[in-house]
């Protein structure tokens, strides 16, 4: 099975709201002093790709990312957890919220470097949180798509999947070729790299393709017209309930809850 995993480099989503700054009128946050990481759900998808390779001998995993040259850092991380190959689709700045544009460039890159039997992506990127690119890539490649997948195993000529739903999960059999978008689950937390593999990763080649050299499918759909990007309204800090000991704290807390009539 030839597997491609789409990775996005984003501002660390764990950064505290105080360090997250927006210039007036800007349509992107300032990235000064904030580390960039692999989008968390893409890490879950990468882990699923590695597990599928283990369950299906002879498979390969190719990590693909779109961004400026520094994006190679996250591709090295994918190589360090033993992805077989890495492709950088080079553009000038980190991709913004234009999902149709991003998906058409990635679909063209997949066609150029493939063909792939399986394309994985996180359910949504931890910056714009749109949850669009994976499914749009499926449409552009003409592949079926299963979203919110947590587990996958080879089954017959296709895959048997677990898909998260509101109050449980669905078991789904899907044909290849296929696109999966992956959501977090205790079974797909990304493994840690071995020291030796980290060193090997630095010597593995990363293929670079200029996005401008790709015959990206033209889309008539214009990007969103962003009118504003603002911080949410501030909320007042909590009233801290104290006391001599835990018993008194608990009693005071219950009293406050009764006053607020929420019990």
């Amino acid at each position: 099975m030839k597997i491609a995993i789409l990775l996005k480099r984003i501002l660390d989503p764990e950064v505290s709201p105080h360090k997250f700054s927006l210039e007036p009128g800007a349509t992107r946050p300032s990235d000064a002093g904030i580390p960039k990481v692999i989008s968390p759900f893409d890490e879950n998808a990468l882990e699923l790709a590695l597990q599928l390779r283990e369950k299906s001998p002879g498979s390969t995993v190719t990590a693909i990312s779109m961004g400026p040259p520094e994006t190679v850092e996250i591709l090295r991380k994918a190589l360090a957890v033993t992805a077989d190959a890495a492709v950088l689709v080079q553009i000038e700045t980190d991709p913004g919220p234009d999902a149709f544009g991003t998906a058409s460039t990635l679909a063209a890159a997949l066609q150029k470097t493939g063909p792939f039997d399986l394309v994985l992506a996180g359910r949504q990127a931890g910056d714009w949180d749109q949850g669009q690119v994976g499914s749009l890539v499926a449409e552009m490649l003409g592949f079926p798509c299963v979203t919110f997948v947590t587990q996958a195993s080879p089954s017959g000529n296709g895959l048997r999947l677990q898909r998260e739903s509101e109050n449980g999960y669905d078991v789904i059999d899907a044909d290849l070729p296929l696109v999966l978008t992956v959501t977090n689950h205790p079974g797909n937390v990304l493994r840690l790299p071995k020291v030796r593999d980290v060193m090997m990763a630095n010597r593995k080649p990363v293929t670079t393709i200029a996005a401008s050299d790709l015959a990206a499918m033209s889309t008539k759909i214009p990007p969103l017209e962003i009118l504003a990007l603002e911080k949410p309204p501030a909320v007042a800090a909590a009233e801290i309930v104290g006391g001599r000991d835990e018993q008194e704290i608990a009693a005071r807390l219950v009293q406050k809850l009764q006053e607020l009539k929420v019990l």
Binding site: P13, D129, P232
Partner: peptide, 8 residues
């Protein structure tokens, strides 16, 4: 967006 740190 950004996990709720901003509103678009």
């Amino acid at each position: 967006v950004y996990g709720g740190k901003a509103i678009m």
